[in-house]
Amino acid sequence: MISCQHVTKSYPGGFTALNDIDFELSQGKMAFLTGHSGAGKSTLLRLIALIERATRGKMIINGFDLNKVSGHHLPYFRRSVGVIFQDHRLLMDRTVFDNVALPLVIAGFSHYEIKKRVQAALDKVGLLNKISRFPVALSGGEQQRVGIARAVVNKPTLLLADEPTGNLDPIISADVMKLFSEFNQVGVTVLVASHDLDLISTMSYPVFVLEDGRLCKDK
């Protein structure tokens, strides 16, 4: 669940990335966030994932009031949110298995449980046969799917994706988007930032448009 009220993010030097954003996404819903480069899509996702903090405003994510989530609670909040980046941010010196297992290792799952869940997540994204490969041996689309598997392996209630198809060709992009809608169908809240309007228009989810740090409309 995402709820933003009057959220503003400005940086030292006076640049305002987000200006008075009101935004709601109920539990179990899926939506797209779109807009030009620099419109504030990434910033909004970073605020929701608490990678950065809002300058002003109130944000309730997964029942956490982000203004009150401090150092000690931060890791536990982040475990309830899965984040996918355009550059997927995999550990290149670890196998696919180790990359996907990371959130589970951190959360202290048993070996047996880790193996079971990693296999299930990789099966879901169609990469079970590449489980012991290193990320460099995978294509861009496959690397992105490893990133998705890592984001969902811990069964988060909210999935955020920042330009997940930015580097992918249209067919693979459609596959990736389809994955997101499948996760949404099993109850995960999904917010995807993308400027791929053609792809977005093929799917029937609400679209929020950011323009110069303001939320203009939602259709």
């Binding site: 890791p75 984040v83 550990l91 990371l102």
Partner: peptide, 16 residues
Amino acid sequence: QDEIAIIKLVGGTNAF
């Protein structure tokens, strides 16, 4: 550094 950033991102505690 990268690894630490990613561990923080997926919810690794400072102790971890």
